[in-house]
Simulated scan of single mutants.
Amino acid sequence: MGQVITFGEVLMRISPRGKKKFIQSNVVEFFFGGTELNVGISIANFGGKVKHISVVSDDFIGDTAISYINKFGVSTSSIGRTKRPLGVYFFEVGAVMRPSTISYNRSHSSFSEIKPEMVNWQKALAKGEWMHWTGITPALSKNAFDILKAGLTLAREKGMTVSADPTYRSGLWKYGKDPKQALIELLELSTVFIGGINEMNEVLGTNYSYSNEDFIEASKQLMQKFPSIEKVFDKIRTSLNSSWHKIRARMWNGEHFQETEDLDITHIVDRIGTGDAFAAGLIYGLRRFDDFKAMKFASAACALKHTYEGDVNLTTVNEVMGILDGNTSGRFNR
């Protein structure tokens, strides 16, 4: 199969060890991640061919980030370098009723000041078969939006599948572009929608509820507004507290509605990147299975990500298939 192409910021995450707050500790650890990069690395861990496109700092931190990405087999040939620093975020892991807390330092990062001449889309997409985008990247700067739209336009001209996870975070959109209009322009170039009712309400200007009936109606309206979209997938999270969640998923493919059963995650290790793990599992699954099995694969991959520290899902295809076979006891594999 051809490459999966991801485009987005590479971030360094800094956290106190364990579930401590910063005020409790002077010992921290770091991880690399970023929404689209998390998707790409997860697909590479499943055995897929992936290229990540970005810009990182031209210093030893950028060198380390590229080495980290390379060790998973993700191509970094289209990652540029700049004198701006790598984006950073600080993360305190919550526990039980105490929520996790994030603070970002990315407003003048290497990626946020990306320029069109830094990305050669013809070269970057030469072996591409699938391109994935999220609503994080176009929110960061006008250039990031324009570059992403140019890449998606070429991807569609080449007949590539384009998956969209139009995550809307209002605090990121600060450069003047109307978020709703921006997402609409990008969704017009997309074929698979990975998002829930909130995202659909945002782009449709509607007020659908979370019920399955409203999900189906919202999906139908979304497909009517964006005729290129062929399938809609939604990950549903039920949070009992910071440490105990339930995950399930549902879909509408233009003909059928289907829903998975809940997966119980009773002792969360780290929930950062779990939505990215779902998207990665779905992309991997849709290229190999029918829609329902792909969605079940994505849900299991998402659930397993909750058991790994860091932003990236390190799980394998065999581990995901084990969950699909009902092996959720966590017993030793010998």
Score class of each variant (00 low, 15 high):
G8M: 12
G8I: 14
R13Q: 06
R13G: 03
V27H: 08
V27Y: 09
F30Y: 06
G33D: 02
T35W: 02
E36N: 08
L37A: 07
I43M: 08
A44Y: 03
N45A: 07
I61P: 01
S67T: 11
N70E: 15
K83S: 12
V93L: 15
F111T: 02
K115D: 00
P116S: 06
W121M: 05
T137Y: 09
A139N: 10
A139I: 05
D146C: 10
A155R: 06
R156K: 14
R156L: 07
K158F: 14
G159C: 10
D165K: 07
P166R: 11
L172S: 05
L172V: 09
W173T: 10
L186A: 05
L187Q: 04
E202L: 05
N212C: 13
E217Q: 14
L222I: 06
Q224R: 13
F226T: 11
N241E: 09
I247D: 00
N253M: 03
H256I: 15
H256G: 08
T260P: 01
L263T: 07
I272C: 11
L282N: 11
Y284R: 04
L286D: 04
R287V: 00
F292K: 09
S299Q: 12
A300K: 13
A300T: 12
A303R: 13
D311E: 12
L314C: 02
T315H: 05
M321S: 05
M321I: 13
L324R: 15
